Every structure is written in structure tokens, then in C-alpha cells.
Amino acid sequence: MTETVILKLGGSVITDKSGECAIDHARLHEIAGQLAVRRGLGLVLVHGAGSCGHPEARRYRINDGLASENVPGVYHTHTAVSRLNAAVVDALRDAGVEAIGIHPLDLALAEDGRLASFETRHIAEMIGHGIVPVLHGDVVMDRLKGACIVSGDQLVTRLAADLGGRRVGLATDVAGVLQNGAVVPRIDRDIVRRLDIGGSTNTDVTGGMQGKIAELLALADAGIDSHIFHISKIGRFLDGTEHGGTVVTRRGGP
């Protein structure tokens, strides 16, 4: 049976987060080349929004909930992240990867900022046929707030749980979780209390590194480890070799 691997590309890896939807096409094609030579994996790809979505979400205050004056923000935020998603899919397909974009706005419903329902059965079918689903952080409708932003990190944890993914990786623009400039090799709920983990320094409505760790610790509670590493180590993660980053694991784990 093909192993399911959940890989997330951070928004800061594939865009310039200080710009306005500034897509790094060269980086996308480098990543696509790494994935194209590793066809045996049942891969699900998730990417962050970076500068394609975060500025719009903040401008329209999407996470504050919907009111008449900010309803257009649903369209503008989704359009921005969809543009980035199309660029990711195009790069993969140019490299020979059978990729297809999937938009959470179309298949998810949230409640107070958390996923309440999220259809994944068709994603499992895609994986079984060698298709790489490419999802992204997105604006979704919310039963309490009207709308909210669901981060790529929240999607990763839900996908891993629903699809039985035992390998979860987050490729970022840093070597892992850093403390005083050094990589913290292992994090669990005990260790995290002793760390000072900052948020993103750029426009980010989903919590930066703090948000990532919160999501991944919940995944660790379910017995699924995850890996945070520099984008240059993506091949090592996919090959199952040492990437020099951080493993988020259950308390008392190995």
C-alpha cells in the first residue's frame, strides 16, 4: 500500500511576504523538480497563502467575522490564494506531476475559526490514482462568524488524521523551530512550555510559528509526529533521511 505523505509549503517559502502576491516562480519550479523524481509517494500538498491572501484577509478583517462592509473580502481573499494555488499546480504539472488544485472554500465549513466539516474522501481517491491534490490556506464560511481563515497548518492536521498520513512535513524558510538561534530538535507539550516561540514578523493572520506548533501538538496527541525543516531539505524529508529540523511528537515519545 502506498504511504500517504502530507507536505506543507510555507507561504514565506513560495512568495515574498513583504510584497503583494509576489510569487516565487523559480522556487516553485525547484520544488516541483524535487517532487517529480519521487513518484512512489502518495503525496498531498498543502501550501500557505504568503503574500497572496494574508494582506487581503487583514485588510477586510475576515477573522473578525462578516458584516455588510467586508463581505467583498471573501471574494478578494479567495481570489488571491487561488492565484497562488494555480501557480503551484502549474509548476508541478510542468515538471510532470499529475497535480490538481483543491479549494477549501468549496468543501469546508468552520465554526468559530475551526473546521467543523471537511470532505476528504475524494482526496483519498485521487491519491489512489496517482493524483497529487494541492490544497491551500483559504477563507471558508463559518457558522458563527460568517467567514474565517483556515490556515494551511489546520488543514495539514485534519488531512493527516482523515487520510491516515503517518509522515507530515512543513517546509519553511528557517531550519526548524529556533531558540536562541539554534534548532530545537524535538518538541512535545512539556518542552514547549520552556520555549519562547515568536509569531510571524510579516503580515500573517494565522499565528506564524506559534500557530504551527499548536496545530502540530494536537496532531502529536493523536500519535502522529510531524517535521519542521528548511525548504532546502525537502528531498531529505521525502526520502526519510535526517533533515536537521524539529520533530513535534507526543509527550514522553522517543
Results as ranks from 00 to 15, higher is better:
Ala49Gly: 09
Gly42Leu: 07
His54Asp: 01
Gly50Glu: 01
Thr77Lys: 13
Arg58Asp: 15
Asp64Gly: 03
Thr79His: 14
Ser51Lys: 11
Arg83Cys: 10
Arg58Ala: 15
His54Val: 03
His47Leu: 02
Gly48Lys: 02
Thr79Gln: 09
Ser82Pro: 12
Gly73Tyr: 05
Glu56Asn: 05
Asn63Glu: 14
Ile62Glu: 02
Thr79Ile: 15
Ala67Asp: 10
Val44Tyr: 11
Ala67Lys: 09
Gly73Phe: 05
Gly42His: 04
Tyr60Ala: 00
Thr79Gly: 11
Arg61Val: 05
Pro55Val: 04
Val71Cys: 13
Asn63Gly: 11
Leu45Gly: 00
His47Cys: 02
Val74Glu: 00
Arg59Pro: 07
Tyr60Asn: 08
Ala80Gln: 07
Gly73Pro: 03
Ala49Phe: 08
Pro72Phe: 04
Leu41Val: 03
Ala49Arg: 02
His54Phe: 01
Arg59Gln: 14
Ser82Met: 10
Leu66Pro: 01
Thr79Ser: 12
Gly65Ile: 03
Asp64Ile: 01
Val81His: 00
Leu66Ala: 05
Tyr60Cys: 05
Ser82Gly: 13
Pro72Thr: 04
Pro55Met: 03
Val81Asp: 00
Ser68Pro: 01
Thr77Met: 14
Gly53Thr: 11
Tyr75Glu: 00
Ile62Leu: 12
Gly50Pro: 01
Arg58Cys: 14
Ala67Gly: 06
Cys52Ile: 08
Asp64Glu: 11
Leu41Gln: 03
Gly50His: 02
His78Tyr: 13
Glu56Val: 00
Ser51Cys: 05
Arg61Lys: 09
Tyr75Ser: 12
Glu69Gln: 10
Ala57Glu: 06
Arg83Thr: 15
His47Ile: 14
Gly50Ala: 04
Ala57Lys: 07
Val71Met: 14
Val71Trp: 13
Val74Asn: 00
Leu43Asp: 06
Asn63Phe: 07
Ile62Ala: 07
Ser51Ile: 08
Leu66Gln: 02
Ser82Asp: 07
Tyr75Arg: 15
Pro72Arg: 04
His78Ser: 13
Ser51Tyr: 08
Ala67Val: 11
Pro55Asp: 06
Gly42Cys: 06
Arg61Trp: 08
Tyr60Phe: 13
Val74Met: 04
Ser82Trp: 09
Gly53Tyr: 07
His76Ala: 10
Cys52Thr: 10
Val71Thr: 12
His78Phe: 13
Gly42Val: 10
Gly53Asp: 05
Ser82Asn: 13
His47Trp: 05
Ser82Leu: 08
Ala67Gln: 10
Arg58Thr: 15
Ala49Lys: 06
Val44His: 09
Gly48Pro: 05
Val81Trp: 00
Glu56Asp: 07
Val81Ser: 00
Leu43Gly: 06
Arg83Glu: 05
Ala67Glu: 11
Arg59His: 15
Val46His: 03
Arg83Ile: 15
Ile62Thr: 01
Gly65Thr: 06
Gly65Tyr: 04
Gly53Phe: 11
Ser82Tyr: 13
Leu45Thr: 10
Asn70Ser: 04
Gly50Leu: 06
Leu41Pro: 01
Asp64Gln: 04
Ala57Ile: 12
Tyr75Cys: 13
Arg59Cys: 02
Ser68Met: 08
Ala57Phe: 08
Ser68Gln: 09
